[in-house]
Every structure is written in C-alpha cells, then in structure tokens.
Amino acid sequence: MRSERARHNKIIFSGTVGAGKSTAIAALSDIPPVSTEAVATDDTARVKKTTTVAMDYGVLNLPGGEKVMLYGTPGQERFSFMWDILSEGGIGLVLLINNANPDPLADLQGYLQAFRDFISGTAVAIGVTHMDRAEKPGLDAYRKKLAELGHQPPPAIFRVDARSRDDVAMLVKALLYTLNPGLIDA
C-alpha cells in the first residue's frame, strides 16, 4: 500500500452509466463541477440524454487552502482507458452501481475487477443507487456477491441517493474509516 503522503489528494468516483457519478460529485463539491458531457448516441441514450465522455471534476476545499479533487470516470466501458489515468494516485474509490440496470451484480463484479489493482492498494466504498425504482437485488445480495469475489473484509455498501450530500458524504467517510478506523478529526 502506498504511503498516504505519496498519494494525490483525490477521490475517484466510478460506476455504471446512469448510476449518479456526476450527480454525486455535484452534491459534494464546493465548486460547480466541471463536466465533459456529450450527447449520448449509443445504448446510453436509452438511459439518459447526455453522458460523461472524459471525466467529471469537483473540489472539496479544506481549511488552509488545501484541496481534494473529486474525479468522476466515464461510465461507458469504451472509455475505460480513462479509468487508470484518473485513478492514478487516488486516495480511494467510491463505486456507484445503478440497481435498475439489467444485471447490477455483474456490473459490480466488472468494476471491482477493472479497479482491482487500485483497490488493493487503497479502499472502496460502494453505493447502490435507484433502489427506489428497482428494489432487487437487495444489499444482502451485493454482500453475498462481494463474499463470493473474495472481498474480505467486506467493503462498505450502502443504499444511496446520489443527489443527497449526506449520502455521498457518508460513502466518503466510510471510505476514510476503511483506510484507517483509528482516524480522529483532529
């Protein structure tokens, strides 16, 4: 695991198309998020009109002028070359899964595999979105999947509303405590 000092101050948001990555960054960022949205032309167009093609960018301003960058990866796999570039040196991964997708458990598996090296050196916290539209699979199904995939100790996984700053902040806090349960806020 990298030392904390060697890491850049950035947190990566990734996940499936329509899971709410851009929304989550907008909810948490202290600046209006910078987005690279383009009109969706492929299967994504059935989910939403525009989609992120390069990255989303937001900032958490810390006391003393320090900044934590919030990077959102594009959801579509054809932009997956961006995932490694954006995650390089990140503190950890917030992974958002759209529960209304046809096979969200397969999505989970795919993203954990894609970020395997990054997660092994950092940590991941998982948010399941759109559970109001699709109640299955439930959180326990995700937990079982994580166990099958050998993720022990199990990462944090919560039901989230990406529009809610509280929910997104909860994911980030869980990520920080996963990295270090002994953290104190002083």
Binding site: M1, S3, E4, R7, N9, L60, N61, L62, P63, E66, V68, I91, A169, V172, K173, L176, L179, N180, P181, G182, L183, I184, D185, A186
Partner: peptide, 22 residues
C-alpha cells in the same frame, strides 16, 4: 490505526477530509 499515524502537529490528509465532511 492500521496505518502509521501522522505527526501529532499536523493531522493526516484523511483526518482533514474527515473533518471537512463532519
């Protein structure tokens, strides 16, 4: 903590982010 702790005079970046979120 499972990781080395930061020097007491300067909280770690994780602590500073946490403080911001809290």
């Amino acid at each position: 903590p499972p990781e080395p702790t930061a020097p007491p005079q300067r909280p770690s970046i994780l602590s500073r982010i946490l403080r911001k979120l809290l």
